[in-house]
């Protein structure tokens, strides 16, 4: 019985409890299938043209009209803004799914490590500054809403681990508003430009820079709130 033997080694209990692996025949078939996949992948990679045509030239050509100077941000927020909008929506849906599964674990009062709390007093302002820098940087260099949101969300996680809790007053609709802000503002701006006759999410070049910055700021807040809320793992 694998169970009795494994109890002597804590930490490997779960793995031992799993059913036994595939037999030799199944292993051979798996190996062959994997080899076939490997050959297929290798052929696909080797048959690629040495210089991929890509859309880099087209993006560079239209960069001045995008409102930002960094091609990646131009693609993410302007040329392919629809994808980013849906990404934000997917993140939001993931949180909805988590929230509908279970309420947040009862805040068993944290006996937070005083070292962690002290460190966070130094780290949290710095991380908020870094998030702001990444957000602003997105306009002309690598950076942007997702990176800034991840850093800001990690700040929230760290603060949670060091025993800080959201005040009750912010727990309700202000939190929900923060979660929704990114998708809402993105969609609203996308719809608003349609009043001028443009297609959905096609910003007028003159105001594109400001609109993208506003969308990215809202998205940063929403992504941060969503990631931190996902870490809590349940409806507050």
């Amino acid at each position: 019985m694998p169970d009795t033997r494994s109890t002597s080694v804590p930490g490997t209990v779960r793995a031992r409890a799993l059913p036994a692996g595939p037999g030799p025949t199944a292993r051979l078939i798996l190996l062959l299938l994997l080899a076939a996949v490997l050959v297929g992948l290798a052929t696909a990679v080797l048959s690629l043209p040495p210089v991929a045509p890509g859309l880099g030239a087209v993006v560079t050509e239209h960069l001045p009209a995008s409102g930002v100077e960094h091609p990646v941000t131009a693609v993410l927020l302007n040329f392919r803004g629809y994808d980013t909008l849906l990404e934000l929506a997917v993140l939001w849906l993931a949180l909805l799914a988590v929230w509908s599964l279970t309420p947040a674990p009862l805040a068993h009062e944290p006996t937070a490590n005083p070292m962690l709390a002290a460190l966070n007093q130094l780290l949290a302002p710095l991380m908020i500054l870094v998030a702001g820098y990444l957000l602003w940087n997105g306009g002309h260099a690598p950076g942007g809403a997702f990176q800034a949101g991840a850093v800001l969300g990690a700040t929230g996680v760290l603060l949670h681990l060091s025993g800080r809790r959201l005040p009750r007053a912010v727990d309700g609709w202000p939190l929900r508003l923060a979660l929704l802000l990114g998708v809402a503002l993105f969609s609203l701006i996308g719809l608003a430009v349609m009043a001028g006759g443009a297609p959905f999410l096609t910003y007028p070049p003159a105001s594109a820079g400001g609109l993208i910055l506003a969308i990215e700021a809202a998205a940063t807040l929403s992504i941060a709130a969503t990631l931190a809320a996902l870490f809590l793992g349940g409806r507050p």
């Binding site: 990646v72 990444l134 260099a141 690598p142 950076g143 942007g144 997702f146 990176q147 991840a150 850093v151 990690a154």
Partner: peptide
Amino acid sequence: ADIALAEAAI
């Protein structure tokens, strides 16, 4: 660099 940042952070 963009993907590197996103990979490290997220």
